[in-house]
């Protein structure tokens, strides 16, 4: 069953004179439980597509169904709710709140969902434990290594039990050894918890961890390969 279904997605940035055509009709379907890597050179539209899949941006044209719900014409606040409940984000730059400790960062999505404080704490600690960071709960991001920060970010993406995890160059700032650790963690999450993962990367050895590689060029899908 499809978790993500896009139909002829266009994204045009209206600059003063010359409009920029970032996406030119992307039709893609991703099933529940898939681990998909989106690849392409910079300017290929993969990041724009990622933002639309993550409900951070809206397509200019085309339809997008997430988990059976049409999200392409939703209001800002409705999209915020979809992001909160259905999508977890992991970014290249970790994007943790610098003034909040690991635990508070993990609690953040639950704050906006209205989860009571004690329950929030319990769930956040649990998620940190799964990430092997139980003893780092009260450290600030600046006191953690890159790999640890990325694991905090992954913990944050998990606490609301979102079915979809969007990872935007999650290993971009990490060394090879840590990159592999993080990727193995994602693979484990995909296999054990059945979380659908969409990964954007330009490194083929990182993409190799996925089961399906979609390549972008000039705002279009140019290839879509499944492993095995």
């Amino acid at each position: 069953m499809a978790l993500i279904e896009t139909q002829d997605i266009h994204k045009i940035y209206a600059m003063d004179e010359n409009p920029v055509y970032a996406l030119n009709g992307v039709t893609l379907s991703i099933d529940k439980g898939e681990f998909v890597a989106i690849m392409g050179p910079s300017g290929s539209g993969k990041s724009t597509f990622m933002s639309i899949l993550g409900c951070l941006d809206k397509p200019t044209r085309g339809t997008y169904k997430l988990d059976g719900i049409e999200v392409d014409r939703m209001t800002r606040d409705e999209l915020a709710r979809v992001r909160n409940e259905k999508i977890g984000f992991v970014f290249q730059g970790y994007n943790l709140l610098s003034r909040a400790n690991a635990l508070e960062n993990v609690e953040l999505p639950m704050i906006y969902r209205g989860v009571p404080a004690s329950e929030r704490r319990k769930r956040a600690l649990e998620a940190l434990k799964i990430m092997g960071l139980a003893d780092r709960a009260h450290h600030l991001p600046s006191q953690l290594s890159g790999g640890q920060q990325q694991r905090v970010a992954i913990a944050r993406s998990l606490v609301n039990n979102a079915p979809l995890l969007m990872a935007d160059e999650p290993t971009g700032n990490l060394d090879t050894k840590t990159s592999i650790e993080i990727m193995e963690l994602l693979v484990r999450l995909n296999e054990e918890s059945g979380i659908t993962i969409v990964l954007v990367t330009h490194e083929s050895d990182i993409a190799a961890f996925s089961h399906r590689i979609v390549r972008f060029l000039d705002g279009r899908v140019v290839s879509d390969e499944r492993k095995g």
């Binding site: 915020a80 992001r83 909160n84 994007n95 943790l96 709140l97 953040l108 906006y112 944050r156």
Partner: peptide, 8 residues
Amino acid sequence: IRMAVGAR
């Protein structure tokens, strides 16, 4: 970040 994780 807050918006990404669901702030309205």
